[in-house]
């Protein structure tokens, strides 16, 4: 198992390097350069040259990337063009919000999705069709719009949850939970749909197998077969989908943080995009890529644990 993890980590390192390099090259294509962006309407050539020098823009691109990379390995991701705050610090202060959203939404999506899918597979008929229809709808509803609807109903009309903003956990744990409820729900909806669909299919596949027939023929009660055997076998494809859902949520956080005014990485990404603050943007992409790679790693470990055949194959 350790071997597997190490192998996976080693495999993902080049991905991380390539993604950051690509971002860097793309960033260098900006019409005008960062110095121009910072100075805005100030067209003093002396100030421009000074800033170029300060930002290292007179260096060739590969050397700029090299110094960014050596800094990145030590945790130094440069600093914001505007606030001059170190990018690592900005990211650190916002990571918690985004991670809470992602983890919360993934867990919720997995729990509700698996339950719905299982019920659909066992009951079939109307329940199965309703699950399918809900799943399709869940995939088609844009998160930002759903978020607005939830705000309208549960915040503005009913007043159960705050519409926007975040109560720090230290101040008021219950308030913290309430401020995360609607965003997590919004974020999880699409995932619930996908996971429910996959679970239903995987459980149905397991039900049609020879071993389930043999278990039934030898008197193992239905409930046990479904919960122990079908679900455990379905867990392998479902884990794949949960991993994919988690990666898909990353994009969702950007919109959801905007809708609910949560100070996370997504909101940072949007404001950095609007202000052309590329060092910050490159930093955000790097962190998001890391999260993707981590989630893939967790999925792979999950595989090894769930499927004895996979582990034997390695």
């Amino acid at each position: 198992m350790l071997h597997l993890v190490l192998r996976r980590v080693l495999w993902s390192l080049p991905s991380l390097g390539i993604v950051s390099a690509l971002t860097f090259v793309l960033a260098s294509l900006t019409p005008g350069d960062a110095a121009r962006v910072v100075l805005g309407t100030n067209t003093d050539p002396a100030a421009y040259d000074r800033l170029r020098d300060e930002l290292g823009l007179d260096q060739p691109l590969w050397s700029q990337y090299g110094s960014w990379l050596t800094g990145a390995v030590r945790g130094d991701l440069g600093s914001s063009l505007f606030t001059r705050e170190p990018v690592a610090d900005i990211l650190g202060s916002r990571l918690g919000v985004t991670l809470s959203l992602i983890v919360g939404a993934t867990l919720l999506a997995a729990a509700v999705g698996v339950t719905l899918g299982l019920v659909g597979a066992v009951r079939g008929g109307v329940v199965g069709r309703v699950t399918d229809a809900l799943a399709m709808l869940g995939m088609a509803v844009p998160g930002f719009w759903l978020g607005l609807l939830l705000i309208l109903v549960f915040a503005t009309q009913l007043g159960w949850f705050p519409a926007t903003g975040l109560t720090p956990f230290a101040e008021d744990p219950a308030g913290w939970l309430r401020s995360y409820t609607l965003p997590v729900l919004t974020l999880a909806t699409g995932g619930i749909a996908v996971i429910a669909k996959q679970t239903r299919g995987a459980v149905l596949d397991a039900m049609s197998t020879e071993y389930v027939r043999a278990l039934r023929a030898n008197g193992v009660p239905d409930r046990r077969i479904v919960l122990r055997h079908c679900l455990k076998n379905a867990a392998i494809p479902v884990t794949t989908v949960v991993g994919l859902v988690m990666i898909g949520l990353l994009g969702g956080t950007i919109l959801v943080e905007q809708v609910f005014a949560l100070p996370g990485l997504g909101q940072l990404a949007v404001s950095a995009t609007l202000s052309h603050d590329l060092p910050v943007l490159v930093g955000v992409v790097t962190v998001y890529t890391l999260i993707v790679l981590l989630s893939n790693l967790v999925t792979d470990i999950g595989y090894g644990w769930l499927s004895p055949r996979m582990e034997a194959a390695r």
Partner: peptide, 12 residues
């Protein structure tokens, strides 16, 4: 990560 990359493209 798809959407963040799109943000970069839109910034550029």
């Amino acid at each position: 990560p798809l959407v963040v990359t799109l943000l970069i493209v839109l910034a550029i």
